[in-house]
Amino acid sequence: MCRWLAYSGSPIRLEELLYRPRYSLIDQSLHSRLGVETTNGDGFGIGWYVPGAPEPVLFRGVGPAWNDPNLREIARSTTSPLFVAHIRASTGTPVQQTNCHPFRYRNWLWAHNGSIRDFHRLKRDLVLAVDPELYTSMTGSTDSEVMFYLALTYGLRDRPVAAVERMAGLVESVGRAYGVPDPLQMTVATTDGDRTWCFRYSSEGHSRSLFYSTEMSALRRLYPEQESLRGLSEETRLVVSEPLGELAGAWQEVPESSYGVIQKGDDELGRFEPAMP
């Protein structure tokens, strides 16, 4: 499968999360502890927002993240208040740049860990459900990108949770029609540059791992000696496939079949329920 993280809060350099933590995303590309595969070397990507720009910047590569000098250069010189990073382990589709996450449509980003089981059998029916006006923007061949464009088709830009629930409902319906057991496995991060939505769901009820960071005020009380926590705002949040470190109390598991919204003010956590479109 894959590993990803989504960050929102005080502007920081990308390397602070991609390289510096003990279990950074780059470390996870070689030594994942909670993933299906230990190594995630089939490409990588980062999408980050620049205040005032209409679209996020996207940098993707087909090589392993741990061995890309351009990624290291960008990470140490780029600061952003909101970004999504992904390291890929292919589930069967080609290793090519257009198949690397995150995917971008205008101001939206999308990253996924998981798969649509027997995607090669379900793909035609799913792709035909994509809005024709959106279809021409699809450039890759992954199930993850099809999920993104189905969510866009069902209203991601207006009602994100409902749109992803409809996408999941369609995948399960088509899967059942083809006799595919437990067709959907997903953790997803998607953002419009202001709010970030995260989802954890699987048809079998045993989803891939997903965690979110504890509130900054609580972490500072627990670890007053941690200098890295001092400059971060109370709005700062991080969602990850697996924790970046071992500070007790720093990470909370996202419940099974749930969605979360990271936003200014109170965040939101709710029940995720697929629905037929």
Rank of each mutant, 00 (worst) to 15 (best):
Y7T: 02
G9N: 01
P11Y: 10
L14I: 11
L17K: 03
S24T: 04
L25C: 10
I26S: 03
D27S: 14
D27P: 02
D27R: 05
L30P: 00
L30F: 08
H31L: 10
R33P: 01
L34G: 07
G35Y: 03
V36P: 03
T38F: 11
T39R: 15
I46R: 03
W48Y: 15
P51V: 11
V57A: 13
V62G: 08
G63K: 09
G63W: 09
P64H: 05
A65F: 06
N67E: 15
D68R: 03
P69A: 14
L71K: 01
S77L: 14
S77F: 10
T91N: 10
P102F: 13
R106D: 14
G114E: 00
S115M: 14
I116M: 07
D118N: 13
F119K: 04
H120K: 12
D125G: 09
L128A: 14
D131C: 13
D131T: 09
S137K: 10
T139E: 10
T139Q: 13
D143G: 06
S144F: 03
V146T: 01
M147E: 12
F148L: 03
G155Y: 01
R157K: 15
D158W: 12
R159G: 10
P160M: 07
A162F: 08
A162N: 05
E165Q: 11
E165T: 04
M167K: 04
L170K: 02
E172N: 12
S173G: 11
D182F: 13
L184G: 00
L184N: 00
M186T: 05
D194V: 15
D194C: 13
W197M: 00
W197Y: 13
F199L: 04
Y201E: 00
S202Y: 02
S207V: 03
F211Y: 15
T214A: 15
M216Q: 11
S217F: 14
A218E: 12
R221W: 09
P224M: 13
E225R: 05
S228E: 15
R230L: 15
R230C: 13
E235Y: 06
R237T: 02
L238Q: 00
V240P: 02
S241K: 05
P243W: 05
L244A: 07
E246H: 10
A248F: 12
W251C: 07
W251K: 02
Q252H: 14
G260F: 05
V261K: 00
Q263N: 05
D266A: 14
D267T: 05
A275R: 09
P277N: 09
